[in-house]
Structures are given as C-alpha cells and as structure tokens.
Design a protein around this nucleic acid. Sequence first.
DNA 1: TTAAACCTTTCAACAAGCTTTCAACCCCGT
DNA 2: ACGGGGTTGAAAGCTTGTTGAAAGGTTTAA
Lengths: 223, 223
Amino acid sequence: MKILLIEDDAVLADGLLHTLNKNSYSVFLATTCSFAEQLLFAQDFDLVILDLGLPDKDGLQLLRLLRQRKVPVPVLILTARDGINDRIEGIEQGADDYMTKPFELRELEARINALFRRCYGGFSNEISIGKLVLNTQEQQVFADKKPLSLSAREYGVLEILLLQAGKVVSKDRIAQRLATDDDALADNAIEVYIHRVRKRIEPYNALIRTVRGLGYLLETEDV
Amino acid sequence: MKILLIEDDAVLADGLLHTLNKNSYSVFLATTCSFAEQLLFAQDFDLVILDLGLPDKDGLQLLRLLRQRKVPVPVLILTARDGINDRIEGIEQGADDYMTKPFELRELEARINALFRRCYGGFSNEISIGKLVLNTQEQQVFADKKPLSLSAREYGVLEILLLQAGKVVSKDRIAQRLATDDDALADNAIEVYIHRVRKRIEPYNALIRTVRGLGYLLETEDV
DNA sequence: TTAAACCTTTCAACAAGCTTTCAACCCCGT
DNA sequence: ACGGGGTTGAAAGCTTGTTGAAAGGTTTAA
C-alpha cells in the first residue's frame, strides 16, 4: 500500500511516518506541493494525505489539478484552520475525507483504514474474492483458509489484482506497484510473475484473464 | 435517490427532512432502530443517515448487523457525544462518514454529496447507448454488462461511433482516430474494421448504418 | 450499363503475450 | 565469511491474436 504524505511540518511528518510504517504502509514524503505533483504524475499511489497549510502553493489547487486530470486516488486532507469553509471546499473539490488539526493519531489510523475499505471495497483488512482471501495487514493471501506462500513480488501482483478484482489492471500499474525506486520493471518480468501467480491460484478457480493491449484482470468463477 | 434517516429528535429530523427534500432526495424517516431495521431489510436505500443516540437500542448494533449481512449501503453517522471513541468505533464498524452534533446543515449537504460521488462513481466515465455501455477509462465496451473483447482497432472504431452516436462519422475521421503516427489508414482497412465491429454488436440491436459518400453512423433500435 | 463506393473473405507479416531456463542475487543460519 | 535455498528478472523461443493489403463480390447512383 503506497501512501503519499504531503506535509511540511517536520515533527508532524515524522510522527505520521512512524505510525503509518507501523501499519506496514509504504509511505513517501513530499514537503512541497510541486514535489508532490511530480511524484503523483510519475507513479501511482493508493492514498494521498494532503496538508492544506503548505508553504509553496495552496493544497486545494493540487487537489483540483488531480481531479481535473481524473486521477482517481483517494485524498484525505489535513487542515489546521478553523471554520468549516476549508473543509467543505476540500470535500467539494473531491477530497474523500478530512481531519482537523490537532488530531489523534489513533483517529487518523481509523480513517485511513476506513478510506481503504471504502475505496478498494471490502471490510476490515480482509477482502475475499472467490476462494481467495487477501489480508493486506499480514501481506498474505489465503486460499481455502490455507496461506499461499508467495514471494514478495508474487504477492504484490496478486494484491493489486485482488484489490481491483474484475477490473483491468495495466502492466504499467503493476510495474508501478512493484517498483522499489523508480526503475520500472520490464514488461517481460511482469509476464513472468503473472505466469507464476496463475499457476498458484488456478487450483482455486481464480483466473487471471489477459486483456490484450490493456492488461490483466482477475476473475473468479463463483457460480 | 432514496435516503433512510434514522433520527428520534423531532426538531432535528424535521430540519434534515426539509434540507434533503430540497436536494430532491426522497427521504424516509425512522425514529427507532427496530423500525429502521425492518425498512432496511425490506427495501433498498442509497444512503443511510444514522443517529447514534437513539432510545431503543444502540445504533452501532444496527450498523454492525448491516455489515454482517453485507448490506453495502453507505452509512453516515451522527453523534452528539464528545470524545472520539464513538466516531472511531463507528468507522471501524463500517460507517463511511460521520458528523458530530451540532453541525451545520451546509456541511452535511456537502458530505452527503461527497458520499454519493464516492460510492456511486461520481465522475462517470461511462456512456450508454442502447444495450451498449462505453467506458473510456477502461477502454472497454460492455454489452448487457458483459465486456466485449475487442482489439485495439475495433475498440477505436466503436468508440468514435458511440461518442458520436446518431451522427455521421467520416472515414477520414475514423482513420485519424486510429492513426498511431501520421500514416493514415487506407479506406479499405476501415471497411474491414467496420465489418468486424458490425458482427460484434449486431446481436445487441446496435447497427452501423452506411451513409454513402459520407461515412457511418451508429444507431440503436431501442424500440 | 457503368463506375464508384462499399462489403466480405482470406492470408501473410507482425506484435503481444506465454513459458522455460538460467545466472545473478539476496537472505539467513552457521 | 561461507554455503544453501529461495527469489528475481533477462533472454530466447514459442503461441496466439491482430493488422491491413489484396482480391473479388455487391450495391448504388447516374
């Protein structure tokens, strides 16, 4: 789970990083909007936490830009300002949730988890598709209640497919997900992982369909 | 849009009813949890607004029940209580948003609208013509909810026809749409694709009419 | 009747994806 | 530091779907 944290206050950023890492999210930090913008258009994130009080430009502008370009990433905004106008405007601009500073980390955690649930379908940390159960907390996939022992890459591929079950996921998006730094993975490598994952899940009636030219989609024949 | 409002305070309920009706939502009121429960399992709602301070039973229980039964309706909870524990618990139980009383109606409106956007795919990338649904985001066309597996070129042709449904589209325009670089496609190639697409969509009462000398136009006999 | 526009089928070249193999590369325990 | 076992992804050959030229058939308008 890749989170982009846009926050300039070093102390707060530090605390958030710590909390989020503890929850096994991989967090990227941007201290300015312009840097955040670069990151957002260079790679895919699963969630954006945006502080509206940034120095270089209004965070709402960044939000508007994102929505104009139809970037579908869920956004949670942080604001220190009183009054409700900012909050309302944020929501109108397409933010998915907000918190007013000061806030309790515990509440932020709950909200982030809720956002994930809401945006990526499913309750709790588990979502089940057919005979497969994905637990993002433990980074494991279960099939018929038995854990599938997958390598990191294999899990990564399967996770994104399960989270978007029924929708086409492009190779690019998969490559993004697996990228550690910024060197993208070759298409062929992804084909290799798709191949490996297929062999693992086919016994459980879950199949990865190829949509030529677009990507892959996971479907289960529950029938 | 059907909203179920679960609220026992007559004054507040009245205000909410008024506001929501103004927004052309059709609102149903339940003043007790047990009545709400009956309603919820009897009909479908698009949104539930749930006050946690109800007399007959804890609203969280109702929420839990809903989620256990996998009722996917979005729930917005209202709470008068201080502290954040209720809010957190509500969100953990599967609520999609909450507001703390007292609140401004304007903010509630914004939140309700945001919830709808969020849960029902606000920026719809879909347009439907007859039995066909075009999703430009996924680059797919659905017929009777099933995706038509089209090649890139086939999709391209169908897309432009659907986007201009009912209007004549010239071969030149189609050639442009399909051009990768700048080498235009021969007329004959387009005829080939029109032919292929026709075969794909005819079963769904969608037909591509030839307008001799001008181009093609897509029409659906919805009858 | 004739020519132009369009339809339809076929097929070879091509591109996308699949699969296997293997060397390099971790990690981890000794 | 060393060795073993799993992991990673480049390479290469294979399979399959896509593409559009070609050729011949059909319709339309004049």
